[in-house]
Write a protein that binds this DNA or RNA. Sequence first.
DNA 1: TGGCTCGCATGACATCTGTCATGGGGAACT
DNA 2: AGTTCCCCATGACAGATGTCATGCGAGCCA
Lengths: 201, 201
Amino acid sequence: MIRILLADDEHLIRGAMAALLSLEDDLEVVAQAATGAEALATARVVRPDVAVIDLQMPDLDGVSVAQSLATDLPACSTMIVTSHGRPGHLKRALAAGVRGFLPKTVSSDVLATVVRTVHTGGRYVDPALAAEAISAGDSPLTPREADVLELALEGAPIEEIARRASLSPGTVRNYLSSAVGKTGASNRHEAARFARARGWI
Amino acid sequence: MIRILLADDEHLIRGAMAALLSLEDDLEVVAQAATGAEALATARVVRPDVAVIDLQMPDLDGVSVAQSLATDLPACSTMIVTSHGRPGHLKRALAAGVRGFLPKTVSSDVLATVVRTVHTGGRYVDPALAAEAISAGDSPLTPREADVLELALEGAPIEEIARRASLSPGTVRNYLSSAVGKTGASNRHEAARFARARGWI
DNA sequence: TGGCTCGCATGACATCTGTCATGGGGAACT
DNA sequence: AGTTCCCCATGACAGATGTCATGCGAGCCA
């Protein structure tokens, strides 16, 4: 019997997935969580065999949870399911030791199969997401460029970005300018959206 | 027996919800669809009692589907479930004749209950979403302001917005300026995000 | 040690944007 | 008929932004 921890902030989805996984004879949902923190806390207590975690949750995102789980409970295999899969997430997830990565568009038997796969030490990444990740390529942004661009996402003026990044406005402008050049965008907002779509920030 | 049509682009979610609804004795999922168009076509054939539709789908969004269903199949009650509920959506949905509006954070028995409620002619709107919609208030934007702001969402420069809206750049700047004033933002990008969050565009 | 890249910063310049004043035409309401 | 609002547009000005040249120090690698 494979013991599963299920984490998803959407109660309906979580309950439904639990119902669905429980239909399988060899799978058992032993715990559920609605937030990242809750998932971590619960996992430490119930020590599941497999953790199925939603990528986007109110507090910690799925990748952070996976990272903590990897060190806390090395015996527990983590897999991530997501609605909107961005290439960067996949890369970060794999780096965090995630063994399975699926979009929610897959069918339920795929989910069950992957649970079994990761439990036996295997890996599974959705082919479509993998292809996307490869075609998106590596981020050409330097770490600081990515930082600054991320702060620019919400449309804040440069001065505020500078404050939040503890940089001078001139430096911020340089980074943004460089990022705009690298993305082929015509201004920082477009660049920020572009980088976001690629999962670079 | 209440006959249900289920539409959601996420296969996993759809299957899981179907499994969950089928656990209820008086509910039966008679059809599923992965896109808005598919949902419409299927509904015309199977004539369900209740249509449970996801708000965001690849082609038509849930509200458009609801609108078509309302004229095509007046006997069919439509309800919408969504991950990211924005006030504007709720308003549009109610105007389109939707009888139920739920976030996916609700529990499964609420879903089943609401299916029964709308089937007997009742209405149900998630209290939290309703409160949000009320507090967000009506859009203060004029139609053209909203148009222009929407085009500004992706971060395009003014000149491109002007071309796409068939306006002069000066006019675009005026609308944006007005919108920025009304939203209390400090630039058009922030204003666009703000308006989007409110469901105004 | 000498390049190399990166982080950080400044200054100058051209362009883009936000703001304001102004005005004409049309629709709606009083 | 007058008032008010919205749509559309122009012009002018200040401030924000994008671009470029330039510089210094730190870390990395051959």
